[in-house]
Nucleic acid binder design. Structure first.
Lengths: 339, 339
DNA sequence: TCCGACTCATACGTCATGGTATGAATTCTG
DNA sequence: CAGAATTCATACCATGACGTATGAGTCGGA
């Protein structure tokens, strides 16, 4: 019943058996006194006596010897007690790191988001959150929607901002909508449709389209829109950045379905025409539903859910449209902290 | 019942509670796999599951989360597991040091001895022992007899060579005689007694004596010799080194009771006259009887007891005289390894 | 798509560890 | 010098942890 195979190094084995006594050894080292060490640790004195003897047994020689009516450490005892103190320091540093990692005040949040959101939404959110928690740390990762969701599920990311949010079917991911963004047909000023007030989806059937690559939310929306209108889109170019797409459109290489350009574009070069009926994409915040989030991540999530309307003025409020809450019932933001 | 007051630093507290899981965390870190870690540690798999959960509880967040049909470490888990691996390395290094300290092949022996014995006896013993155990390490400490015995009892020294050995009355110290050394009256060549064949103790009554300070064995023997002869010695000078004493004698400042000079002195300067009856001092090896000696110390002690006659040719064999064994019965060199 | 292999978590019974009470040894004090 | 106080070790008993058996969930293959 006394398992002790561990690693190749025999000293690692005794180290593993010494490990439970780390605090005890450190206390003995500090006090040179069994009773004192016991009350320092908050354990009864006989426990210290026994475990000291047991530790000495595993080392192969007593760690303390009677000295008067007290005890003193043997040389071997000094060596292991010193090592224990060092090991405890190392471990405490690790505990501190871990604590800071999860503490809402100082914890880290790995936030993934779409390239386009890095312009204003994410900076606002980060700045707002750090006003409340100045020591909070962020790791920011940008990428395509599907990549973000995949890395979120894989645990690499804590929170992601994507559009559209994942369907509620997946029990591993939870999501909540944050804001809407109107998508408009972006086309060269010279294009025949450039003067229109609105454009219907079907009117894009014959156009060369410039889109993001598969995996991006905008691409998915574009594809679905075309499918709903009953035609297969003719993709002229694919890119990874909306700015690239916009550049291609400006160069006259096609038309694109994009969010409105934030400083409105030069009307002499590019026109942005709303769709009819209008098309929106919903930006949602996602997190892993299955596991318990760290306090830091939870605090950040709740902050984003509560404050994003105020912090992202250039986005539209959710409005009446977009569906009932996408948040699975059992995992609503406020009620998972039970137990 | 769940004690956990420890040190001021709260992180030290969680470190102490993390300590028993060091090996487990290291194994998880290495394998990223509960079952694999369990068989690496040689413990059943449920134990690993439970203790991982418990460790996560103390840290405040799970250290592993389900990932497919396996698990993966959370960020906090990585931090504490890394720290655990480092701590285990530190602890293993300490265990190695302690092992080397007590191992007969590489262990350390702190050997105390009288200044005079550093000339040939101790170097011979050390050299001889290291021929058998090349990695053995010695720390050599020189000093007066009483100081040596006191520091031996205090645990600072492992073995001491002193003359005379301590009386068998003290149960804390054990001793065994090693060799005898004749003490002779050392006096200036110009002294009236310089031509004598032998000198009786009583004849020193009127002389200026040069001795070592109190606490040295030679001083004690000198004092007792004078007391036995019925006079109080007239101490002209006290020193700490026999060579100093010899110098004072050469300078004509008194006579002294000293071991024979090892290269015989210049007869034109100093005479060495045996006492009548002859006086010897017994050099003994002492160790602590109460505690269990480390294998290294025990091996060295047994080596010295067995080999010193051959290694110290300039000393006299024990001869018939010096008392029955001074070794307490229960602690004879060979039979304490019971239990 | 269903089955099988595999991995991790939970349930229950046993045993080792820890807590309480007490004893042996030593030092300090009157 | 003797009693008292202190300190560490041992004995007994209860609680919590471990080990065994089993279940829930997930991935690869037919």
């Amino acid at each position: 019943m006394t398992y002790e195979s561990d690693s190749a190094d025999p000293h690692e084995r005794v180290a593993a058996r010494l490990a439970p006594g780390l605090a005890l050894l450190a206390a003995i080292r500090e006090t040179q006194h069994v009773t004192r060490a016991a009350e320092l640790l908050g354990v009864p004195q006989p426990t210290v006596s026994r475990r000291l003897a047991a530790l000495g047994e595993t080392v192969g020689t007593p760690l303390v010897v009677p000295d008067g009516r007290g005890v003193r450490l043997t040389r071997a005892g000094h060596l292991v007690a010193d090592a224990a103190a060092r090991a405890l320091t190392v471990l405490a540093a690790g505990a501190r790191e871990a604590h800071e990692e999860i503490d809402p005040e100082s914890g880290r949040v790995v936030l993934g988001f779409l390239h386009l959101l890095g312009r204003s939404l994410v900076p606002s959110l980060v700045r707002g959150y750090r006003e409340r928690n100045p020591r909070a740390r962020f790791t920011l990762v940008q990428g395509a929607r599907d990549e973000m969701l995949h890395r979120l599920a894989a645990g690499e990311l804590d929170l992601v901002l994507v559009a559209p949010p994942p369907p509620p079917g997946d029990p591993a991911l939870a999501a909540a909508p944050l804001a809407r963004q109107e998508l408009v047909v972006t086309l060269p000023a010279s294009h025949p449709l450039a003067g229109r007030a609105t454009i219907a989806a079907a009117e894009l059937a014959g156009e060369d389209l410039v889109t993001l690559e598969r995996g991006y939310g905008l691409r998915q929306i574009t594809d679905e829109l075309c499918a709903a209108a009953g035609f297969r889109p003719r993709i002229a170019f694919e890119g990874q950045e909306t700015e690239t797409i916009r550049g291609l459109v400006t160069a006259g290489l096609g038309v694109a379905l994009l969010p409105r350009s934030s400083p409105p574009p030069d009307p002499a070069l590019v026109a942005e025409i709303p769709m009819s009926p209008p098309v929106f994409r919903t930006i949602g915040l996602c997190w892993r539903a299955a596991e318990r989030l760290t306090p830091a991540v939870r605090a950040c999530r709740d902050f984003i859910l509560a404050e994003s309307p105020d912090l992202a003025p250039e986005f539209l409020p959710l409005g009446p449209r977009p569906s009932p809450a996408l948040v699975p019932d059992g995992m609503a933001p406020d009620e998972e902290d039970e137990k």
